[in-house]
Amino acid sequence: MAKTVLILGGAYAGLHVAHALLKKQDPDVKVVLVSKISHMYWNMASVRAVVPGQLGGEDLVRPLSTALSRYPSTSYEIVIGSADSSDFDAKTVTVTVTANGTTRTIAYDQLVLATGSRCPTDNVPWKANGSYDSILDSINRAKESVKNAKQIVIAGSGYTGIELAGELGYEYQKDGSKTITLLSADADDKSMFGGDMVAPALANELRKLKVNIRHSVRVVDARKQEGPEEKWAITLEGGEQVTADAYFPTMGLVPNTEYINAKHLSESKTVVVDEYLRVSGAPEGTVWAAGDIVSKPRAGFMITQKQATTVAKNVELALKGKPPVVHKGMPMDVIACATGRGRGAGRIGSSIKMPSLMVWAAKGRTLGLNYLKGYVDGSVA
């Protein structure tokens, strides 16, 4: 009887691992991929997709069924649904199937946790918060809001907030048709972007694009006012009121780990793993994790790719009864943040600044969409 590898999550980490295992063409292994949406969603480019005249929502999605169709149908199964609970000792995961709302308990030999994270605010396209249709709808609604807005407010000065401000600033800096304001809870330029050394350079790039940056302000409430103009009423800590035609919150991420027993999680609700990317406290050599769901070192595309490679290798070894290999991350930490379609800022390691042109070439030019083909044709793994 074939052994079952259950992969929870059909995005960067999960689909990567699925391809790596299915390429082995082992008739004794079946991959079951559980994803809450039917498509691979390239959310990294969502900040550009909300700009009128740029990417469409359809440019960011590809069917999971297409991505795995090159493999024998008996070697895999795609389940569109969400994990509700898990029992690592019994080696089972309970899933609610989206199509009919039924509950299904799936037994596994090896389990990969790759359910990622979500935005704390619904109806924004920065993460796959909802269904395939709701993702496209949120992109289209955001695009329409940008199109009709004169005053745009973005809350949050992390990756998403800065890159969104950069995309909008790049598009509208010349005609001045829109006022773009970035609200940051941080005290100054240096403390933006998690206090990383590239923060001042990013702030400088945004100001070149005529983005207004307000420091030491925190949004406590934002409501869309009723009426023909549909303006946003934004309340800041301290009581100040700000009005906008379009409002985009980008603050924080919530790990999708509610289905996992708390003993396997950190204080921040991410999964705790060892040097092999095995989940802490789970039966040895049966549960692994990769991507945003992992507690270390941080969320990041290149970090996820490295983790997915290690997890796929260790699952393969575990199926053969062999010991795992130690995960080797990036040789140096790399940060690259785009500020529109022309420039950006970044660093290599703790001290080497990346030239703006290098950031544009590495990320800003395509926001990684050039990698999407690899996730569809399997060459990513």
Rank of each mutant, 00 (worst) to 15 (best):
I80N: 06
N140K: 14
S117L: 11
D84N: 11
N129L: 08
T105I: 06
D87L: 04
Y76V: 09
T102S: 14
G101I: 02
V112M: 01
R118M: 11
K147P: 06
T105N: 05
S134D: 15
A67I: 01
S138P: 11
N123D: 15
V124I: 15
Y132I: 04
T92K: 02
F88Y: 02
P125Q: 12
S134C: 07
Q110G: 06
T98D: 08
G57S: 07
T96Y: 01
N140A: 15
P120K: 09
D84L: 15
V146M: 09
P120Y: 11
S117M: 11
E144I: 13
C119I: 06
T74E: 14
N129C: 11
R104M: 06
V97I: 13
T102P: 00
T115A: 10
L60S: 03
S73R: 08
I135R: 08
A90L: 07
D133M: 12
S86I: 03
L60W: 07
V95N: 03
L111Q: 02
L111W: 03
Y76A: 09
E144D: 15
T103R: 09
D59T: 11
T98G: 01
P125S: 10
S65T: 13
S85V: 01
S73Y: 05
L60V: 05
T102F: 02
G130D: 15
R62H: 07
P125E: 08
E58H: 12
E58V: 01
F88P: 00
V112W: 05
S86P: 02
K127W: 13
E77W: 07
D87K: 10
E58D: 13
T121V: 14
S131R: 13
A114H: 09
C119M: 15
R62Q: 05
D89G: 02
S73I: 09
A107D: 10
V112P: 03
S75Y: 11
S69T: 07
E77T: 13
L136K: 13
A128W: 11
W126Q: 07
T66G: 00
P120I: 03
L68P: 06
T103H: 10
G57E: 10
D59I: 07
V95F: 00
K91Q: 12
I80D: 00
G116F: 10
I139T: 11
I106Y: 01
P72R: 03
E144A: 15
R70N: 01
N140W: 09
R118T: 14
V93H: 02
T121K: 13
I135A: 12
A67V: 03
A114I: 09
A114G: 05
D133L: 14
P125G: 05
S145A: 15
L60K: 04
G130W: 13
S134Q: 15
L68N: 04
N140P: 04
T121I: 11
G101M: 03
V61H: 10
V124K: 04
K91Y: 00
Y108P: 07
T74F: 06
I106C: 02
R104W: 04
L136F: 11
T96A: 02
N123S: 12
T98V: 03
S85I: 02
S138N: 14
A142D: 13
N123F: 10
V79W: 01
